[in-house]
Nucleic acid binder design. Structure first.
Lengths: 343, 343
DNA sequence: TTGTACGCGTTATCAT
DNA sequence: ATGATAACGCGTACAA
């Protein structure tokens, strides 16, 4: 079965190809009647323009790509929704693309820039530790949203970013726990090789302890298990279970993501600990489900809506040439719910 | 900044375009040395083939599209992972595409078929109530995975499907609750206009009650609030809160999705009810987090792994022409955890 | 207002 | 083994 093309439509309508093209693309120079007729024929014949051909030919696709690292990163759903809305409002198309944990997001972006005619890229999550050279091949403005670039630090005027200050927010949480009287605070964090938000949040933890005159104890630093999926419920559960088995004294557990914290909470419950009576529990991110678990999870809430909106705004400003690359830090909100208590 | 093309590479290498193409696409008829040289030049110049041009020209893209309805449908993450693996194994490319709640998945599929050269389509979730005519335009085999086609019933040899028997599984759960001594079982379900899995699960509920000699009470049928997002935590919470305020007697609440159930659990807790001592709580789907909430959620576990594997298998069998379209029903597993009890 | 013809970057066909 | 060249389906400059 042959696919129907713009040629066929032109033939059926008895007009030239370009007239059909004009009808499709809302060009001004076309007789309204002709246009209507053409559109009707298109409907009747279920003609759909071939996107590959369009992208190939077009200069100006008005498309923004959003690359999300990790398929089940529920933290980003709200963000994507907002981005989509903002992008649509500007009459742009959003190309949403998941990047597998194993894939290289910059490679994916590189391909996508060629394939579609992207005007901008939004990277959501992940780490993005890449050579500047590679990034420079991205001849399109891009912005990192909620991404730890780690200690690399590219020339800060080659890209924009929007994020919370992970170290500072983490500090907030740990400081709050300290001020609540906790001294033995375990942290479920990324493994040592992690050079991203995981590391930053760990730094905040250490600094807060020090500032509160509490020595950092290695036995309270619990890296995720590398054989399990990062930031997963299971990982939080297993790490905590193993930790509890050791009997190390501790009155609070702080996990660097809400999902880890929920996993940890289950391990606590299974081991007979009550939260927060026996052990306080805190997370990070402010995902929706944190409000619904029992007890409701104390966390650092990232202002996802504002962050998404600002991400879109900055990107469009840069595309329009009105603004330079910039780096926006948002303030997280220490959200105290039921899973932590004063000692 | 001009993008580098296959022509440039050919020029640099001093060979013809077709030779470069051969090198890229692993064609047999090429001198290994030439190939190696070309590949090196490609590397050095960071050349990336334009996918749009490829798709336009190519006959044979060996691509399978997976269309997921709903951005935050966490139920599918595991499934997608398996699908990706299976598809890769067959040397095919997986094109993952999220379909917004507002979008029409068949329209998206239609476009995608034109754009890429798809060999097959997997629809994940959603409802898919479409005219056969429209579906017929999809000149590519497709398979519905975990989709309620509702009462429409297309000619069953135009597509394949993989799912659990939603009515039967729902029956299982409610029957279990009845046998546990519950007589006043509330159900959080889809609104009446829903013609999909929501309706099927409601049917199973009613039938189970009847078979157990329990009259169906309208006041125990709690449809999701249409102004809130379907199947969301918030929806489960609000529906339950409103229901509890009425004081209708009830010893068990069964929500047709785990996420709804978790929302309901919070409303119960907030209203001072203990689960399962005061009210039992059950869900449906078997998502991972159900194991980690407290108390762990009794549910119907869908065998996502097997279902995904079978979906891929069937699709490839059809593509290869070895098998006809077929409809596979999987058995769900009644998974009794801590949120339900014997009266 | 409309139609013709060219080119986008690639793969496939057919020579060589 | 390699190179020239014709498509693929569409948008657009240019001519009418």
């Amino acid at each position: 079965m042959e696919e129907i093309t713009i040629k066929d439509i032109a033939k059926i309508c008895g007009v030239g190809i370009s007239t059909v093209s004009r009808a499709i693309n809302n060009h001004p120079d076309i007789n309204p009647e002709t246009k209507e007729m053409i559109m009707r024929v298109i409907q009747e014949n279920n003609y759909i323009p071939n996107n590959s051909a369009r992208n190939l030919k077009r200069q100006d696709a008005k498309a923004i790509a959003v690359l999300v690292k990790g398929i089940d990163n529920s933290f980003f759903s709200a963000m994507i929704r907002v981005l989509e809305q903002e992008i649509k409002e500007k009459k742009y198309t959003m190309v949403l693309r998941h990047v597998d944990f194993a894939e290289d997001e910059v490679d994916v972006a590189l391909k996508l820039v060629k394939e579609k005619r992207l005007r901008g890229i939004i990277f959501l999550g992940g780490y993005l530790l890449h050579s500047e050279e590679k990034l420079a091949q991205l001849h399109v403005p891009f912005i990192l949203c909620t991404i730890g670039t780690g200690p690399v630090g590219y020339s800060r005027n080659t890209y924009s970013s929007v994020a919370v200050d992970d170290a500072r927010e983490s500090y907030k949480m740990v400081d709050y726990l300290c001020k609540s009287g906790h001294r033995d605070i375990a942290i479920i964090c990324a493994c040592e090789t992690d050079a991203s938000i995981g590391m930053l949040r760990l730094q905040g933890y250490k600094k807060a302890l020090q500032d509160n005159g509490i020595p950092v104890k290695e036995e309270l630093i619990l890296p995720m298990k590398p054989d399990l999926e990062d930031y997963s419920l299971e990982n939080g559960y297993e790490v905590t279970k193993e930790f509890l088995a050791k009997g190390t004294p501790c009155t609070a557990i702080y996990a660097i993501s809400d999902i880890l914290a929920i996993g940890a909470g289950k391990a606590l419950s299974d081991a007979g600990y009550r939260v927060p009576e026996d052990i306080s529990l805190a997370g990070f991110d402010g995902v929706e489900i944190g409000k619904y678990v029992i007890p409701a999870l104390t966390t650092i809430k990232q202002p996802v809506d504002s962050m998404a909106r600002e991400t879109a705004r900055i990107l469009f400003e840069i595309i329009s040439g009105r603004e330079q690359h910039q780096h926006r830090i948002f303030e997280g909100e220490l959200t105290i719910r039921e899973s932590t208590r004063n000692l």
